[in-house]
Design a protein around this nucleic acid. Structure first.
Lengths: 310, 310
DNA sequence: TCAAAAGTGTTATCCTTACACCCATGT
DNA sequence: ACATGGGTGTAAGGATAACACTTTTGA
């Protein structure tokens, strides 16, 4: 604690900086992630990513918006920085061309039309995280996962508690990253043995793998989004201008990965003043027509933490 | 939404990457931030910062730990990445030598001995954020701040709501960054006119300024720490191995910047099983001796979100 | 004996959760 | 007429917030 007064003013070393985006949309009840089919790495899915060009872009976020608009043609509404990944493991497979590239991960929210979905490269995020969908109750795939995790947990103390906490009924839906990292440690996802960190375990790899550490970035995005729903009105970035309360609920459920009690959800939405009726009705519901609502942008200025504390 | 399948594989452009740390400790009732006296910029306080050297450090965090240990001699316990700042504004004053340096900000928690505090460069964080200390009720400095903010708010619609929401009695203590940024927008902090973004407003600058955007990083660190207290047992990184419940409360209050109801705090601590009695008593309390407690590390494995939801 | 801080008991209120039924429409 | 989803009322339980008083020690 003696020389704390000295600032290192040595010249910084150049590093290659990439920007990677987890662009999320919801279509009906399907949570979607925009993928770019990678040309290398055996066609594994990748998140769209591009370089940060400090000469043309004033800030990181401006750089991101620029090339996502260029690649997807759709402007992103909500954009939020997630995390900066500087792990050497990222490039274990990449031929060591750039063993130290640093990548800044972003979460972006957008809307997608019914038909543009597949054409644009959107895929259900549960293809990559099948264990995260508890909307129909405990996902069946856990019957395949838990025995393998239990076997791994038996080999060291403390592991069993982590498994129970992250994958049990009482799990916290926001801890998607920790769940993925646990599966990585346990050698059950392809990335783990591809990076050469952990030996391949017997049995199939869990979920579709992604390029580099993109699945980790997606896990981070999912967790952050699930957490953010509760205290910021971000769901509305995923909704069309007017929507029914059931559509809103389906969207929240798609993101949160679990069912929500209908009445309580409605009371919550009403009590928060997040929406107001447009006066119109939706008739294509299959049953009684539903009242249409729109987001009240004003709440953001009124309440300290407007969100849907489901 | 048409060409989303193409991954940009163009070579990344080199960028200078720095690591900046907000190293926090609490001494008694004083929340502290470790500063490095900057040699340039008229002796303004700076956060310790250093370059990321990709050749010697495997990850960003390892790089950070290495040079903080080197500079301060004290190993950091808890370390968490905050945000990556790539704003050109950072260097408006720096002579345009490196107009596009990117800096990764970190929050670190450490313990400080009674006497090492000043010698090591620790300063009360309220020197930089005097409006954040509501422990004795509404801070007096608001009498000087609010009229100036109100004047600024009168010039455009919507501003008054933001001011009320961020600086009123019902404010959210976690939104330190937004408060700082509002003062920046309003031209009331030195950084605002130093960066040339906003004209200097009449009246003194609020709080002590810091080098570059270090005060913004500190604001981010304070907000993140205040939020984290509530769902992770991070306070204990600031406590000695054994402590009284009152000392724990003082520490939480120092970080949160507000008073806590004694009985409710104690019940909360008990109900969460975060601590256990050591069996010893502290006699230097000035009154009745207090029971000493220690942190129960086991809770982390037991409960989904262990923290002090004050 | 008294100042100073430790430590406890109780109540009112709000929020969360759960449950079950009726309503309006398109087919 | 009936299937389908829209829409509501109410009650129990737990968490939170507010209150004031007793206890134990060092000086």
């Amino acid at each position: 604690m003696s020389k704390a007064r000295k600032t290192v003013a040595a010249p910084l070393l150049p590093v290659e900086l990439g920007l990677t985006a987890a662009i999320v949309a919801v279509n009906g009840a399907r949570p979607l992630i925009l993928t770019a089919r990678a040309e290398s790495e055996e066609g594994r899915a990748a998140l769209p990513s591009g370089p940060f060009d400090p000469l043309t872009h004033r800030t990181l976020e401006i750089g991101l918006r620029a090339w996502v608009a260029e690649q997807t043609g759709a402007p992103m509404g909500y954009v939020e920085q997630l995390y900066t990944f500087g792990d050497r493991g990222r490039h274990a497979q990449a031929g060591d061309v750039a063993p130290h590239a640093v990548s800044v991960g972003y979460l972006a929210l957008t809307r997608v039309s019914q038909r543009a979905e597949a054409a644009a490269g959107f895929r259900d995020w549960h293809e990559f995280f099948p264990w995260e969908d508890w909307r129909e109750g405990r996902p069946a795939i856990l019957d395949a996962i838990l025995p393998r995790l239990d076997a791994w947990a038996d080999a060291a103390p403390g592991r069993a508690e982590r498994v129970g906490l992250l994958f049990g009924e009482r799990r916290d839906e926001e801890r998607t990253l920790e769940r993925y990292e646990l599966l990585y440690e346990a050698g059950l996802v392809e990335e783990a043995w591809r990076d050469g960190r952990v030996d391949k375990k017997p049995g199939p790899a869990l979920g579709a793998a992604m390029r580099l550490d993109h699945r980790r970035i997606l896990a981070t995005a999912m967790g952050r989004l699930r957490a953010k729903l509760k205290y910021r009105p971000v769901v509305f970035e995923l909704m069309p201008p007017s929507f029914t309360l059931t559509a809103l609920q389906r969207t929240v459920e798609a993101v949160a990965g679990r069912q929500i009690h209908k009445q309580n959800f409605r009371r919550l939405v009403e009590s928060t003043d997040l929406v107001e009726p447009t006066g119109d009705l939706a008739h294509q519901t299959g049953g009684r027509p539903a009242a249409l609502y729109r987001f009240r942008r004003a709440v953001v200025a009124e309440r300290p933490a407007p969100g849907l504390r489901v």
